[in-house]
Amino acid sequence: MTNQALDPPYLFPDLANSVLRAPAKALVMPPPGYVESTGPVFGSGDVRDSDADLTVHGVGEPIGERLIVHGRVTDTFGRPLSGTLLELWQANASGRYVHKLDRHPAPLDPNFTGAGRCLTDADGNYQFVTIKPGPYPWRNHDNAWRPAHLHFSLFGQAFTQRLVTQMYFPGDPLFFQDPIFNSIRDERARKRLIASYDHSATSPEWATGYRFDIVLDGAAATPFEERS
């Protein structure tokens, strides 16, 4: 069931573009059905190994601080979710997206597209190699800047376990004015969006490591054991 303390509300007037898009009527709870408690199953044909490394698709290396971002995907019982598709997109080191609607006058990086994907392994673990995105301005309010973030999309094992979220970096000075980060009104839940610096994942002479564990809510119809 939707938890108002832990989910962002639909209507959050500080986020200007929520005002005309937030549903106003109460959500309806349907009888639990098999359509929502099943979901697409992913396999090796959905990803290539190189899809998890966002730094290898250009002629040369992208500009920026090279990162290893890894973590574990579990359900709310702590059980690892294997074979879950993660999709990642982000701005480049100067805060610019490869997108026709991004008007931020910061340079594109010919060696960085900013999209990746991978599947979790048998223990629910995933790992991406990328570069640290820059913050960017976005006109929501006066002098509005998004804290540096990675966008993540996850499927879990059922339609109900679907999650789209954003990962932030510890100590970002822009948190105080960001309505998207602060739309999570429970501060202890909001902290779950912040990765931790992970020195054990940092690769000597090569890349800094961050850990971002992801917990998916919602149940799958079939017993967990049969789907792993």
Partner: peptide, 18 residues
């Protein structure tokens, strides 16, 4: 941070690249 589900965040305007 308390243990529990990872909260939702908006997909934003720039998802087309992924």
């Amino acid at each position: 941070a308390s243990p529990g589900p990872t909260p939702w965040q908006t997909v934003g305007p720039f998802f087309h690249l992924a």
